[in-house]
Nucleic acid binder design. Sequence first.
DNA 1: GCGACAG
DNA 2: ATCTTGTCGC
Length: 196
Amino acid sequence: MPWLPSPWDRAGVRRVAGIDVGFEDQGRITRAAVAVLDFPSLALVEQSVARLPTAFPYVPGLLSFREAPAVLAALGQLDTVPDLLLYDGQGLAHPRRLGIASHLGLWLDLPSIGVAKSRLVGHHGEVPGPRGAWTPLEDRGEVIGAVLRSRAGVAPLYVSPGHRVSLEGALAWVMACLTRYRLPETTRWAHRLASG
DNA sequence: GCGACAG
DNA sequence: ATCTTGTCGC
């Protein structure tokens, strides 16, 4: 399993948090959820949900203004301090290289990774079919992330470094949090808590 | 002026 | 993101 993080790279990481946001009451309420999983068992160890009035519209590139307040509230309710954050959105793969995953990691001084379901910026070629295959996501001459085949036969994921994690490390962590589905377990739990 | 556009 | 039933495929 070449994509698994080396024992050295994952040293100290025991708790990986998945974060996602959902909306209630036709968008008037922002609901942020955090799911803390044990690594590498991926068992849920803690969860938290915070609901706040929505105070900013969705503007591509400015997701932090809309989602970060509720996310910080949810993170503040945790008893467990995560060692790594996986956010449902972009990290480096942002027009200004500061997607919400990077923004949160920087603010909290925690390693973070952006795992988005679609593209904000950048271009890429076809992604090979096998699970684990990936293609670089580039923008203005720089590699800003990777388009990863998390599962054969389904749309790929847009993975990018958030804070204190390299692209290779980001890919390794995402692969290590995947099981049989398109999204990593962290995101699946967070999404379940924030929405469905 | 015309597209593109995380969630 | 959210509003929503049935439907195609493993």
